[in-house]
Write a protein that binds this DNA or RNA. Structure first.
Length: 301
DNA sequence: TTAGCGGGTTCAAGCTGGAA
DNA sequence: TTCCAGCTTGAACCCGCTAA
């Protein structure tokens, strides 16, 4: 308890909230939002409440997902490409803006904010002639990485294989598209079937952001949403989440029963002489810890 | 009075690109 | 190749409210 800052008292830190955190709180402290001092054999909180002080909760790696930077570059360059094109083709801005005021345009605006449809739209953008003109060296998914900074900076364009006059080649493509669109103004629509996404197998609610301040700060880019969605997809096997019980958003019953493979788990078991080696035992432990049942599961004792 | 919990703030961990 | 700074996410935990 001495390093949490709560009882530091005489030290009078400049920022009273600045304290040394436990790198990993025990399960009881985690569930109850209490500061854990990692004391042995029991932390202060567990000692006070006469609880077993264990570390069976699975952890998730921190930091950005792999490929984040690549995706960020792609995003930046795509945005730069839009700026370049709008500046290079007079009237295009007004043309697009006019379309966005139509019913189908408003539908499009809703579509681009729909996380479930963004992947497809991004893919469509990366498959487009415009995109391939801008990023000729790209293979699609990692499009921007091969031309990092070239659109915004302009100096490396030739070295990277971009045509020197990227605006002229692109404007020819876009002009063609624009005239086609003008001709089809009334017919043009996102054509709901074009966004006909089959229901996903992901039954989980969107991950709850632990830090809404961060989320708000990132919203304009929505890039991290894209990356986070990839991560969420990887856990689509989950049918039940422990989030309401204080576990991480993507933690599932399946993860819960996998805790036995966590080295720290085994260490803790040894440390405290508890035998939680079986799924049933772990289940009972957590139900006792949190004072509630997890409901149906294939591991029901 | 105390436990439980939601929301917000703060810090630690990890990825990446660039410099040395 | 190594180190470091910048950036992001995950997690710890503070604060305040509510219910028992």
């Amino acid at each position: 308890m001495s390093d949490t800052g709560a009882d530091a008292g005489s030290e009078a830190p400049v920022n009273p909230r600045k304290r040394k955190k436990a790198s990993r709180a025990c399960d009881y402290c985690h569930v109850n939002h209490q500061p854990c001092d990692n004391g042995k054999p029991r932390c202060g909180v567990c000692e006070k409440h006469n609880k077993d002080c264990l570390y069976l909760r699975p952890t998730k790696r921190r930091g950005p997902q792999k490929g984040y930077r690549t995706a960020l570059n792609t995003y930046k360059e795509s945005a730069a490409a839009w700026g370049a094109v709008l500046g290079a083709i007079p009237g295009l801005d007004a043309l697009i803006e006019g379309h966005l005021r139509t019913d189908s345009g408003r539908a499009l605006l809703k579509t681009i904010k729909d996380a479930s449809q963004q992947d497809t739209l991004i893919s469509r953008w990366q498959q487009s002639t415009v995109f391939k003109t801008f990023f000729p060296n790209s293979s699609g998914g990692e499009a921007g990485s091969t031309v990092a900074g070239s659109v915004a900076g302009g100096e490396d364009a030739e070295e990277e294989g971009l045509p020197m006059d990227i605006f002229s080649s692109t404007s020819h493509v876009l002009s063609k598209l624009a005239s086609q669109q003008q001709q089809q103004q009334h017919r043009f629509s996102p054509a709901p079937p074009a966004f006909d996404f089959s229901p996903t197998q992901n039954h989980m609610a969107p991950p709850k952001q632990a830090n809404k301040q961060h989320q708000l700060a990132r919203e304009p880019t929505s890039l991290s949403d894209i990356v986070a969605k990839d991560a969420a997809r990887s856990t689509s096997h989950a049918f039940q989440t422990l989030a309401p019980l204080g576990f991480a958003p993507n933690e599932t019953i399946a993860d819960f029963y996998d805790m036995g493979s966590n080295p720290e788990t085994n260490l803790s078991n040894n440390d405290y002489g508890l035998d939680l080696g079986t799924d049933a035992d772990q289940r009972v432990y957590y139900e006792l810890l949190m004072g509630r049942s997890f409901g149906d599961s294939p591991h029901q004792p």
